[in-house]
Design a protein around this nucleic acid. Structure first.
Lengths: 104, 104
DNA sequence: ATCGATGTTCGTCGATAATCGATGAACTGT
DNA sequence: ACAGTTCATCGATTATCGACGAACATCGAT
């Protein structure tokens, strides 16, 4: 697996971040990651094809939200801690609002 | 002018709201509206065609963020106060992060 | 060297987005 | 009645999105 691209946080726009968070599947990924740990990409079972999940992971990386660390044939995904320095409070606010009825 | 549609806030999803806020032109509109007053739709000069601005206004309405009140041939636009009850803190957070460099 | 597992990339599809100019609808003022 | 203003809508264009399967790359294990 080629090492994925992680943009500098300073080049990530608010539109990029909000665009990444506007999709419910991607928010579901982020919600899992808020435990602060790394998760295997393959452990997300969100009802989409593997290639689709890979696409969403790319969007999250480009939005500066997540970090992907290849490990052999697998891939560990985690939140980028610096994201909250770039956009303070955004993740907490968005995820806090992401209740059952608001989710779709 | 036909009266524009304003969705019930309970039917507006977080994805709708975030999608509306993900566009910099629309955030520029919202930023103006945070003075709490009504503004004429024609007073926004954001460098896009009139029809394009109308399109953005529609997105903001559909995201539950703004209210449009026709008045003769013109249209007064304002924030929907209930939006903050539906998504508490979202507008304040997003607009607070919308600095010059993050804007695009 | 081959195989299976895991993700990424590619090509494609239908749907939606953002933009524009042109047209239409509704109102105002003369 | 007519002309002008203001905004919405239409039609077209171009781009992007989310989805899929298929193909590809990389690695570990056999």
């Amino acid at each position: 697996m080629r090492a994925p691209d992680h943009p500098q946080l300073s080049t990530v726009s608010l539109s990029d971040a909000l665009g990444a968070l506007a999709d419910p599947t991607r928010r579901a990924v982020v919600r899992v990651l808020t435990d602060g740990r790394e998760h295997l990409a393959g452990d997300f079972d969100l009802g989409v094809a593997q290639s689709t999940l890979s696409h969403h992971m790319k969007k999250l990386r480009q939005g500066g939200i997540t970090h992907s660390r290849p490990d052999g044939t697998r891939c560990w995904v985690s939140l980028r801690p610096e994201f909250d320095e770039r956009f303070p409070g955004l993740l907490r606010t968005v995820l806090g609002l992401d209740t059952e009825q608001a989710r779709s």
